[in-house]
Design a protein around this nucleic acid. Structure first.
Lengths: 332, 332
DNA sequence: CTCGTTCTTTACATCGTTGTAAATTGCGTG
DNA sequence: CACGCAATTTACAACGATGTAAAGAACGAG
């Protein structure tokens, strides 16, 4: 900036004024400075701006796994929504490891980041409540914390109930569930299981604990393994509700390998509506959370905090839809 | 830092020395300063560090699309490799738009970023050569530019030849290709097509232009559409080489819907080996680039540049493998 | 011609950190 | 007890930008 000032024959502050479109700069000076800027190819130093002004234009998005299609799709929407605010998104992959998530809580890139959108996997209410870092944070996923942070999610219980109601209406009576998690802290599994149970009750169906399969994580391989176990049961299910699409795709794979027909012999439902699910064999019936809205709401909440907004924490529940594809039908 | 210094009764510089593990600090002072640091919960300001020292610990990864599984998987490896260097990765999604890619070339977050790993889609040799920004950059994908920037990729021509050789060995004679791009500048399509042609020639198979289908982009829907057109031919192919796995998965979907058996009636091959391809129906034969090595090499090249390495640009070609799954077999 | 007003431009300090070089302390030696 | 040397600590400046406040310029009115 000093070089530009020298070339234009003005002070650095005047250059700064031109760069920042300050009103009271004579047209003559403005033109002279501008051409000096262009000639030297001036680029502002963001570190300096950030140091001086306190804002960097950077927000962090902390997710468990980038190659988890649901998160990849969500990340895309968030990057787009952030762009509209002139923010750049720094993506942090936690791998669902407690130590990485703790790092996110404590501030990944301290005072370089204006705000954080965080999708916790193992971090619980206690850790969230104990957070000391003051960077504005918006939480995604299940609402584990009823405290000071903003939160965006969907009604998991209602969604799971919707799935079971759909299957029950079609005439299924032995509806299995894949995705229970006994040892993890994640609330997702608990809420979806709760909705599953409520759905059975609403439909007047008995609850059979042997039909609930645990999943160590929510990858395709876990779904395939769980489905194998279900098929080994003396009295196998006629429908399976998988707690996410990846599990369901794994389950479909197992069924295909075993020659079990979907949906004739077993109906399958997923959760998330990743793009892959509309190309699976057969197309997967699933719950579609409104990812675009989840993204834009998260950004809007963060923007409100950054614009000096204090106030109580806000909790937004976005809509979801049941997308019916070929993987569900009445039992034959 | 000033507060810490006051509390510990030393100068700011001594605090800085403790924070940076400078050797010549007496144990007594070190302990005193450390407890002051802990008590006040001191966190260094990265903007200031970056301003002063010139390095931010941030590198950018510019990719076309995050929800493209190949890029999501690659991003994951890169984030992991970067972590080992203590770098945080800032992910920039270009959507393959020229204007976004230009922004990457000109410096996304100027002087805040130590280096860039860039996977261009539409940026050509000319633009790359005209780059003025001096941030170290490593290019991924096809080598469009033979100039000053480091590059990591695989041998696309050889890989495509391998695919065609595999199909020809199985006994296929009418091998189609999906993924040609006439209007885009992307080199990927051109190189893979070149390998396809070379493969046909090696196998002594005639080249039939009607078997080469263009794809506007490389999404599942494009593959499905192209496959539909191929099936409408008077003399349809007995094998299809798709230039990436997403196209192949779309093609599989069309074939399934039309009741065409894979691999009995038509064999299908993809490119990239995304995880989804081992769960498709049937499992997809594909080319597996060594993503982990591409990632670690990119990071290593960047590290070399940042450690003051000038010198000529380096071009690294990583290995690939042909993964044979159920989607290919001898024609029945 | 002087004064007040508005418009432009500028000097200075500051954000938090760290390199440089100088000041201070401590200690062993002659 | 003075001296030299090493260990320890410090003051100062600088990284690049911008808010504050004040200085300088221009202009019309009396």
């Amino acid at each position: 900036m000093l070089e530009v000032a020298t070339l234009a024959g003005v002070s650095v502050k005047t250059v700064s004024n031109v760069v920042n479109h300050y009103v009271h700069v004579s047209t003559a000076t403005r033109v002279r400075v501008q051409s000096a800027l262009d000639e030297l190819g001036y680029r502002p130093n963001l570190s300096a701006r950030s140091l001086r002004g306190g804002q960097s234009g950077l927000i962090a998005l902390a997710l468990p796994e980038l190659d988890f299609p649901y998160f990849a799709e969500l990340a895309r929407y968030i990057v787009q929504a952030a762009e509209a605010h002139g923010w750049t998104v720094l993506i942090d992959q936690t791998d669902g490891r407690a130590e990485r998530e703790k790092l996110v809580m404590d501030g990944i890139r301290d005072q370089l980041i204006d705000g954080v959108i965080f999708s916790p996997l193992v971090t619980g209410a206690r850790e969230l409540a104990a957070r000391r870092d003051t960077t504005p944070m918006v939480l995604l996923g299940e609402r584990v914390h009823h405290g000071t942070m903003d939160h965006v999610g969907i009604d998991n219980v209602a969604a799971a109930q919707t799935v079971v109601a759909h299957l029950a209406t079609l005439g299924h009576t032995r509806i299995a569930a894949i995705g229970e998690q006994r040892h993890r802290r994640g609330e997702t599994a608990r809420l979806r299981l709760q909705g599953y149970l409520a759905g059975l009750e609403n439909a007047g169906l008995p609850f059979d604990p042997t039909l609930v399969m645990a999943a160590a994580s929510y990858h395709r391989a876990d779904g395939a393994a769980a489905m194998t176990e279900l098929l080994a049961l003396g009295d196998p299910p006629d429908a399976v509700f998988c707690f996410n699409d990846m599990l369901a795709i794994g389950a479909l794979r197992t069924l295909r390998d075993r020659g079990v027909r979907v949906p004739e012999d077993v109906a399958v439902v997923g959760f998330d509506d990743i793009e892959e699910s509309s190309y699976s064999a057969p197309g997967l019936t699933t719950i579609r959370p409104d990812k675009a809205r989840i993204a834009s709401t998260s950004i809007a909440l963060l923007a409100a905090r950054l614009d000096g907004g204090g106030g109580p924490s806000r909790d937004v529940t976005e809509r979801f839809d049941l997308v019916v594809r070929r993987s569900t039908a009445s039992p034959s």
